[in-house]
């Protein structure tokens, strides 16, 4: 009798074990499949446009006349590249120097105070950054343009880039602080004991050690900046043309999708074109993520 109860008990435990593993596997497969599902959806939806035009024509043409069926994505791609790279160029040195100061020079209390501040910055909804951009940055950019004798409303690539820079700073900074914090202090001690100054130690040893982490943080910054929509859309001007200067308006890919999806769908092929824009966004962000990962792996072998 007792033996029977025991076997029963064992069976139930085994069953429970198997069931829980099964559910875990299901969840993990779902997460794993998500990007592929997304990619397939985008491919199917945008395939309509592929059928009629070649990809190179779509990407390298700057003619955007949906009414007559002309969809050239070049203005949007160029705008996206402009805002993204200018924002990272603004944010990168600020983040690097701040991270170095906070981890190497400041007292621990300062870092403890800064960390929640950074988290608050990261958590602010992007629409608030957009409003702030309209109120402060746009007029300011207009003024700066005046100093260079350029007429600009202020709704421009530069305004978008500045707003984006502020938005990606907390993300890049958080990673950089983590990267610098995990470098063992003994490495600094080794360098200092050879007669190096603190700055030499930071520049030649710590930053070298941190290099893969620095690259990955910038890579993450690029992917975030490239995909950010609302805040940029509010300050960038949204004019379809290829921008030739930072004081001109631009029209990045995410803004194109957000502004038009749902409204212009009566025009033939328009939804397919927007899906293609989304696909380009998806692919570029993926390439950037994978690229920074490759650099990390490649570089870590060297040091």
């Amino acid at each position: 009798m007792r033996a029977l109860v025991l076997t029963n008990f064992k069976l139930r435990r085994n069953l429970r074990e198997k069931l829980s593993t099964f559910w875990m596997k299901c969840c993990y497969i779902l997460v794993l499949a998500m990007p592929f599902i997304l990619l397939t959806g985008l491919l199917i939806k945008s395939s309509l446009l592929f059928g009629e035009k070649s990809l190179t024509e779509l990407i390298f043409s700057s003619e955007w006349k949906p009414m007559s069926g002309k969809f050239g994505f070049l203005p949007f791609i160029i705008s996206s590249l402009w805002v993204t790279f200018i924002s990272v160029i603004i944010a990168a040195p600020i983040c690097l120097l701040t991270a170095i100061y906070l981890t190497q020079y400041a007292r621990r209390v300062v870092l403890k105070i800064m960390q929640p501040v950074i988290d608050i910055l990261a958590g602010i909804p992007s629409v608030i950054y957009g409003v702030w951009g309209i109120i402060i940055i746009v007029p300011f950019v207009s003024k700066i343009a005046g100093w260079f004798n350029v007429h600009s409303s202020g709704y421009s690539i530069l305004a978008g880039a500045v707003v984006l820079a502020v938005m990606i700073i907390p993300f890049i900074l958080n990673i950089l602080i983590e990267v610098y914090k995990t470098i063992p202090i003994e490495l600094s001690e080794a360098s200092l004991s050879l007669g190096a100054t603190k700055w030499e130690t930071i520049k030649k040893v710590l930053t070298r050690k941190a290099f893969p982490g620095i690259i990955s943080s910038f890579g993450l910054g690029v992917s975030r900046a490239f995909g950010e929509t609302i805040a940029v859309l509010m300050v960038v001007g949204n004019v379809v043309h290829i921008p030739t200067g930072i004081f001109q308006a631009g029209y990045p890919l995410p803004a194109l999708i957000a502004n038009n999806y749902g409204e212009m769908l009566s025009i033939p092929m328009y939804d397919s074109a927007l899906m293609l824009a989304a696909l380009i966004l998806f692919i570029v962000v993926t390439i950037f993520n994978m690229g920074s990962r490759y650099i990390i792996i490649h570089y870590e072998k060297k040091i």
Binding site: E186, E189, A190, R208
Partner: peptide
């Protein structure tokens, strides 16, 4: 040091 920390 206690354990080796070669420079990178």
């Amino acid at each position: 040091a206690q354990s080796p920390y070669p420079l990178p």
